[in-house]
Design a binder for these strands. Structure first.
Length: 643
RNA sequence: GCUCGCAUAGCUCAGGCGGUAGAGCGCUUCAUUGGUAAUGAAGAGGUCCCCGGUUCAACUCCGGGUGUGAGCACCA
């Protein structure tokens, strides 16, 4: 007779096997109603699951993340059922849970329209009202194949045929709809009430671009109306922060048809860029990098030698001149090796760290471009460290220290670490790969931070670590990287004389902290909602006069502040002060300096922060100190609540 | 690159079952010199993305292209 232990430690005895639903019922009617699934000895199960031995049981509701996941998965089934009721010819494929929601891929003769989505949503509501019982059943593989063949569901047949052996498969039925699924699912369709279909778009069958394209309908589902509303608000907020919109509104940059995927930086956007560049230059100098500059156009033969042409020929821009073919460089490393190759190098020269703010062009697929985040022309804070195998670990460790310090200065405390290891197609011995992977693992472990292993995703020449930032919306943006390369230096003839007088090929570490300036600035804009911290703001302060009478004082003040190295403008237009305040607040300028007769008389300024906070009047000196103090703190620990 | 949308004034967007277009903001001019998120009035401003086709007539319909958005695929 089962003795059930509940999460709070209390125990209940039952005189016969009980289902999860019955356990919930015995605790309370409210819980029984809310029960979506159960967790029995750690395993997620349906509420119909029968417990016949002593077990730890938790009732899963929409309040916990497990419950939400079950709810979303069931919502995907609900949507598939609705689609098949409305469009019997539509075939079902897969329908997993994703962050905040779910999707289901269908094969259908025509595209679903937004009107179709509305109809589907309505049908889903109807099925919720019907409150169909969701029943689990087991079928053999052959039975299942026969059933789906009979239904004309060729994709399901393909899925099942791909499942090895003769293991039994579980199915979930609700009314006339049945789907292959591991489960668990909600006990009845009446449990999934709060959802919204959000979009329809193409998606390749099995994620392979050689396959036919299916139609993916995305939806979001929540445990309560309130949560759904919060989610939709979050989407709105993300849209407001979209760097493409803010870039236009704040006059930072633009794109135009004649140069797809290439940025026209405006004065304000370029100011941000330059501030970041000079900051990085200073950081790199302090970390013993030597900055260099290499050509944009390099004979194609170099890219053939380096191995890039073989792999990326389609993604390289080329230029023909004087019967020679050049590639516009897609990366900087081959050029850096040319610099390394000048003069004979000794082991005493290693590690040699070369850095370049290298401008690169890549022909990115048209569909992948996205504002500043993915462009065809970009600049990397690129660097290559030439070293011995023994030096890999300490160089990687030093780099990580530098990277974390930089990220902190930019206000990013949440960094996600991923190690990508040997891919199937690779160069170099397994022993070499083993050592390199171990060196990276050791460096990761030394941080004490959690990291993720991504097997098989390394570059063909070596393993890599990628560093992603989590912005204030929780979105993950890959920026930094360090990659171990055993191959390229040798292929381009790099060597040094070792202690034993032998000729050896150096290991090269490719590394970048920000990645591309373009992308990084895009991330910053969205993270700060355009309200850049003072050290990055293109205009740090603006002086506003009340009437013409103070114009001269304002101009003098502006000059004095400029001479101190601040980025300050003045708005002396014949407008009311309220109008000016509004306009420059919307332009997200950190400090608004109001000057009227009172300020002129007392040689002061009235300081207002962009958030609306009044700092009162202060002297020129006091304001300089205040701004200097703000600037010197970079963006550390900043939470950009200001709009 | 693939699927489906979208492209109208500097910006944000209306609009017409085919008869060359409109708002708000911005811009210019005039009045106003006003103390912390929008002063008032007048005016200027458009090859309705590009190239073809249908038509008496195309910004509107059809075909192609380019750019762009969402998603997929890709990302040295």
């Amino acid at each position: 007779m089962p003795k059930i232990t509940l999460p709070d430690g209390s125990q209940r005895d039952y005189d016969k096997p009980v289902t999860v639903a019955e356990i919930a019922e015995s605790i309370g009617a409210g819980l029984a109603r809310a029960a979506l699934a159960g967790r029995v000895d750690g395993e997620l199960v349906d509420t119909s699951f029968e417990v016949n031995t002593d077990a730890e049981v938790a009732i899963v509701t929409a309040r916990d993340s497990d419950g939400l996941e079950v709810l979303r998965h069931s919502c995907a089934h609900l949507m598939a059922q609705a689609v098949q009721r409305l469009f019997p010819k539509a075939q079902v494929t897969i329908g997993p849970v994703v962050e905040d929601g779910f999707f289901y891929d269908f094969a259908f003769e025509r595209a679903f329209t937004p009107e179709d989505l509305q109809a589907i949503e309505k049908m889903m509501q109807a099925i919720v009202k019907e409150d169909l019982v969701v029943q689990r059943s087991i079928m053999s593989r052959d039975e299942a194949v026969a059933m789906f063949k009979d239904m004309g569901e060729v994709y399901k047949v393909e899925i099942i045929e791909g499942i090895p052996g003769d293991e039994d498969l579980s199915f979930y039925r609700q009314g006339e709809f049945i789907d292959l699924c591991r489960g668990p699912h909600v006990p009845s369709t009446g449990k999934s009430a709060t959802f919204k279909l959000t979009s329809v778009a193409g998606a390749y069958w099995r994620g392979d671009s050689n396959n036919e394209m299916l139609q993916r309908i995305h939806g979001t589902a929540w445990g309560s109306k309130k949560d759904l509303k919060l989610y939709l608000q979050r989407l709105e907020e993300a849209e407001k922060r979209d760097h493409r919109k803010l870039g236009k509104k704040l006059d930072l940059f633009h794109f135009q048809e004649e140069a797809p995927g290439m940025v026209f930086w405006h004065p304000k956007g370029w100011t941000i860029y330059l501030v970041i560049e000079s900051y990085m230059r200073q950081v790199q100098n302090a970390s013993h990098y030597q900055e260099i500059r290499t050509p944009q156009l390099v004979d194609y033969s170099l890219w053939e030698k380096s191995g890039h042409a073989a792999k990326f020929a389609d993604e390289m821009f080329t230029v023909e001149s004087d019967n020679r073919l050049y590639a516009i460089k897609p990366m900087n490393c081959p050029c850096h090796i040319q610099v390394f190759n000048q003069g004979l190098k000794s082991y005493r020269d290693l590690p040699l760290r070369l850095a370049e703010f290298g401008s690169c062009h890549r022909y990115e697929p048209s569909g992948s471009m996205h504002g500043l985040m993915r462009v065809r022309s970009f600049v990397q804070d690129d660097g290559h460290i030439f070293c011995t195998e023994d030096q890999i670990q300490s160089e990687v460790a030093d780099f990580m220290d530098l990277l974390f310090a930089v990220y902190r200065d930019f206000g990013f405390d949440d960094v996600i670490l991923r190690l990508s290891t040997r891919p199937q197609k690779r160069v170099g011995s397994d022993a070499l790969w083993g050592d390199a992977e171990q060196a990276l693992k050791d460096a990761l472990n030394a941080t004490g931070l959690p990291w993720e292993l991504v097997p098989g995703e390394g570059a063909f020449y070596g393993p890599k670590i990628e560093y992603s930032l989590k912005d204030c919306m929780g979105r993950i943006q890959q920026c930094g990287t360090i990659q171990v390369d055993f191959f390229t230096p040798g292929s381009l003839g790099a060597h040094y004389i070792a202690e034993d007088n032998s000729k050896k090929v150096p290991v090269m570490l490719h590394r970048a902290v920000l990645g591309s300036f373009e992308r990084f600035i895009g991330v910053l804009i969205e993270h700060h909602a355009g309200a850049m911290p003072a050290w990055l703001a293109p205009e740090q302060a603006i002086i506003l006069n009340i009437t013409d009478k103070q114009a001269k004082y304002c101009t003098q003040l502006q000059e004095s502040l400029k001479n101190k190295g601040f980025r300050v403008s003045a708005d002396l237009r014949n407008e009311k002060i309220g109008f000016k305040i509004r306009e420059h607040t919307l332009q997200k300028i950190p400090y608004l300096l109001v000057v009227g007769d009172k300020e002129v008389e007392s040689s002061t300024v009235a300081v207002r922060k962009r958030g609306g906070e009044d700092l009162g009047t202060m002297t020129f000196e006091d304001f300089c100190n205040h701004l200097s103090h703000d600037v010197s703190h970079f963006g550390r620990g900043e939470i950009s609540a200001e709009q």
